[in-house]
């Protein structure tokens, strides 16, 4: 998650462009060893077991290692070994930005120092975060994400990033902003969540991105914003919101949702407290709106 938040910080400060960040994240991802590969190489798991865990991750919001232990495929000690192997080969976002020529080392150092000061992190916390140490990082970022967005929206956005990686197989860069004016979108897929908490969630984008999003998620040859394309983008939102509802249910908050809707040329009047999560993918940009 650090990559996404630090990337967002660099974008907001105008230090890099979205395409440069996307490029660095892709480079970072291509260099990262997956835990499944490490597990098979170490002889701890079979490829079929790895595939099974990957499929489970599409339904439950849990880490690879956590599920593999629950299934009895690996021990906690073996997971520690695997994570250590992964960390050794892990390329930090800052290094990826420098390697790809988007920042100089001096610019990176200055940005990291400013980031640490602005978010008031201790040196220890910052070192954990900077190393992308996933076990500790989630708690630290839960605190900073919550300070920025509030707990509910922070949980929602964290899950959104994970689900874009899981279901659309891309490394999104997100910019988070408060909605300050009306928003008009050529294509607008939305779904209402209701119960103890009421939220309108929506994906807003232009035609081209809508079609690409649909094709990526459905893994179908979609070239027009036809009924299948609309069903695909709507279903991504439905799937993501469904997992969010399961997480909330596990925390004792039961919520319901209405069927998803897809509209064209929709204008959403500024409803007051709302956020726009702009997601930069390798194939285009779309907004997720949370009201």
């Amino acid at each position: 998650m650090f990559s996404q938040y630090f990337g967002n910080y660099l974008l907001n400060r105008g230090l890099i462009r979205p395409d440069q960040l996307t490029d660095a994240l892709e480079y970072q991802r291509s260099m990262r060893l997956k835990l499944g590969v490490i597990a098979v190489n170490a002889g701890y798991m079979t490829p079929a077991q790895v595939e099974e865990i990957h499929n489970m991750q599409k339904k439950v919001d849990k880490r690879f290692g956590e599920l593999a232990i629950e299934k009895g495929y690996i021990t906690e000690q073996q997971l520690e070994e695997m994570l250590a192997t992964q960390r050794q080969g892990h390329l930090m976002l800052g290094q990826a930005l420098v390697d790809r020529g988007h920042l100089t080392i001096e610019q990176l150092q200055e940005a990291l120092d400013n980031y640490r000061k602005e978010y008031g992190m201790s040196s220890r916390e910052f070192n954990v975060v900077r190393k992308d140490d996933s076990l500790e990082i989630e708690q630290i970022f839960r605190d900073y994400g919550e300070a920025l967005l509030g707990k509910l929206y922070s949980d929602y956005v964290t899950l959104l990033i994970k689900n874009l990686i899981r279901f659309v197989d891309d490394n999104p860069t997100v910019e988070i902003n408060q909605l300050k004016s009306d928003i008009t979108a050529q294509w607008f897929a939305s779904q209402e969540i209701y119960g103890k908490i009421n939220m309108l969630t929506a994906i807003a984008c232009d035609r081209d991105v809508f079609v690409k999003f649909a094709a990526k998620f459905a893994q179908e040859d979609i070239t027009e914003p036809d009924e299948l394309a609309q069903a695909s983008v709507g279903e991504f939102l439905n799937l993501h919101n469904g997992i969010f509802l399961v997480n909330m249910s596990n925390n004792g908050v039961e919520l319901e949702m209405n069927p998803q809707q897809v509209e064209t040329n929709r204008t959403l009047a500024n409803p007051g407290k709302a956020y726009v999560i702009t997601c930069h993918m390798t194939w285009g940009r779309f907004d997720v709106i949370l009201v």
Binding site: L239, G242, M257
Partner: peptide, 23 residues
């Protein structure tokens, strides 16, 4: 897509044979 506790309970009580969470 939403296998919440309340959905699972309601489905099983109403006589569903099984419950599958998408995908």
């Amino acid at each position: 897509s939403s296998g919440t506790k309340s959905h699972l309970k309601a489905a099983m009580e109403a006589g569903a044979h099984d419950f599958i969470q998408k995908p």
